[in-house]
Write a protein that binds this DNA or RNA. Structure first.
Lengths: 347, 347
DNA sequence: TTGAAAGCGCTAACAC
DNA sequence: GTGTTAGCGCTTTCAA
């Protein structure tokens, strides 16, 4: 009855028991639907629960419970607001939801320190498992955690110095397909533009690019490889340097979504969008609306997220077999920008 | 030494104490940096921590700790993979991170039932606070939780039947500005196309649209109002019906991002993009690259998320003043599509 | 500076 | 069916 300004305290199982005139354990049985409770008593308990607005403290239960599960998982991605990351997140959420599990999510911004801090924050709160799009290049620090019963699945990029389940797309093949597509249109001076050189996916896509040149007997020209763009504007600046050179490329393979947008912006600003061929990597929501429409190599992001979550829950449900590697195919969709024939821009 | 297949158990503070030859409490002091520990003993403890790869169980600590904080908040949005939601998420994450707090996130898909389930899941795990982009129309069920010390901030839409802090954009003004902009170009038959009619933001934007017509002495024509589109393709279908009618509009106000994309697609497919004016609401990443570029009313999503998080942490830090309402302005940026003069499409 | 004891809210184990 | 007791891993309290 006393109405102080400080918040009322939350009611506990004990309060419910007192109000219903029974014991703690009986309340526990009713709340957890264990059965073996006299229906009338159960009704009294449920009334007390309602009356006191009782909400079980799962944290406390997890502490004692034999399986020790918190019904919680942690997701670490590059940047939660990037469409690739958030599509993964949604796919994972949907699987987790079926298992009555909720998801912590955080952004790493390609920072290995942040990766360790966040895994630590999640693990200290005893998440049941972790799905990681890694930023770091050494995951041995997770070994003990893994052995101690916390499954960890790597997504988009494989683990380093650690054996674990992982899911990746066919990045090499995608880069190869993109480049071959341009070569088939007659291009021989094809620029590659990508994110930080250290990122696994970029390295793979660049590998595919090189392979395509090689089997087509086109000499590899390092001047045509622009790495280190982490935003649309970085990409525009890099391209501008390249196109101002004496021997500009006739086509561009942009190996990531932001970089592809940068390339589109650069070409539009210079009025080159119908003269220079472009194949991008990753989804761009308005690819079909641009003029010309953008030829893209895309990943099945939903399947990637779903597969990772399924691998995780398989382990959570007791599976103890060999670690698995799932490879999700990429697809090239011609839409116009990739089908432009070579035009010399030399003066 | 015994290597069984079942996972090793995690080491606890007690294990560390035993190894370091001291008591539980001393380990606690070292781990929590409380000071008043003999430096040599502290070193022994830290060595044991390392050796055993000890990781404190924050859950257990929170149970006993006087403030009862889990350093955890919950975020409920419409759909975590939608760019608006994920931009909010990122802004909130950044504020939370400064406070050493991690974020649970989940999607409601405009489903009030899901709203209750998820708040329940978060609350049962004792999040310190909640930020909600609500799907439901009655939030009185949260009143007890709020009184019991869990701050709740509403975002993008106000709470119903509950007093709480909230952050919204100037949706009405944005809708008004968009419509006035079209009227100033000479349009009098302006279509409104939006999401579910029940969504607060849509209703506000529609209100602004009506107001603009009213003060311009343009009669309101309900046939020009298309609601219920929840995807790009829904919007295309609705518009197609309207434009096939005997007296089609000369301009469109699309009140949401997916709907705007649908409108763009519709106009492009029909070759009408230079004949029918269009003003959209919300950010579209390639608005500047389309032909014509898209005139948009945009919200400052990052500021919205940040403000909501700041309101939450202010309460978490003990503030007990009146509930606040923060209103974040919207901005109209003319880019081309909104500056097309009326063209009669009647035959 | 250190440690022993109590207890957070709950479930497990075992009585009655 | 029902209740009692112990204890999950930690922090708090208080005594030494």
């Amino acid at each position: 009855m006393s109405e102080t300004h400080s918040p009322r305290s939350r009611s506990t199982m004990r309060d419910v028991a007192r109000m219903a005139g029974t014991s703690l354990k009986t309340v526990s049985r009713v709340v957890n639907d264990e059965g073996n409770v006299n229906p009338e008593l159960a009704v009294r308990v449920m009334e007390a629960v309602k009356e006191l607005d009782y909400r079980p403290n799962l944290q406390a239960g997890f502490l004692r419970r034999s399986d020790g599960k918190t019904q919680t998982i942690g997701l670490l991605v590059e940047n939660i607001s990037n469409p690739f990351s958030s599509a993964l997140h949604r796919a994972i959420e949907d699987v987790a939801r079926k298992h009555n599990v909720i998801v912590f999510a955080g952004s790493l911004d390609e920072d290995p320190t942040r990766e360790r801090e966040l895994t630590d924050a999640f693990l200290s709160r005893r998440v049941d498992g972790l799905i990681i799009v890694p930023a770091g290049e050494d995951h041995s620090y997770l070994e003990n955690e893994q052995e101690t019963g916390t499954p960890i699945v790597f997504l988009d990029r494989p683990p380093a110095n650690l054996k674990a389940d992982y899911v990746v797309a066919t990045n090499f093949d995608g880069g190869f397909a993109a480049t071959m597509h341009l070569i088939k249109q007659g291009h021989r001076r094809i620029a590659y533009i990508g994110d930080y050189a250290t990122i696994y996916t970029g390295a793979q896509r660049l590998g595919g690019y090189k392979k395509a040149l090689e089997i087509s007997n086109i000499p590899f020209d390092p001047k045509l490889v622009l790495q280190g763009s982490h935003s649309s504007s970085d990409a525009q600046i890099s391209l501008s340097g390249l196109f101002d050179s004496s021997n500009p490329p006739t086509a561009i393979f942009a190996s990531q979504n932001f970089v592809t947008l940068g390339a589109i912006r650069y070409l539009h600003n210079r009025g080159l969008e119908r003269l220079v061929a472009l194949v991008g990597f990753d989804e761009i929501s308005e690819a079909d609306l641009l003029t010309p429409a953008i030829t893209l190599v895309t990943q099945d992001v939903a399947t990637m997220g779903e597969s990772a979550a399924e691998l995780l829950f398989k382990r959570l449900n007791g599976y103890e077999g060999e670690f698995e590697k799932k490879v999700i195919p990429t697809v090239l969709t011609p839409r116009g920008s990739g089908e432009i024939a070579p035009t010399s821009l030399q003066r």
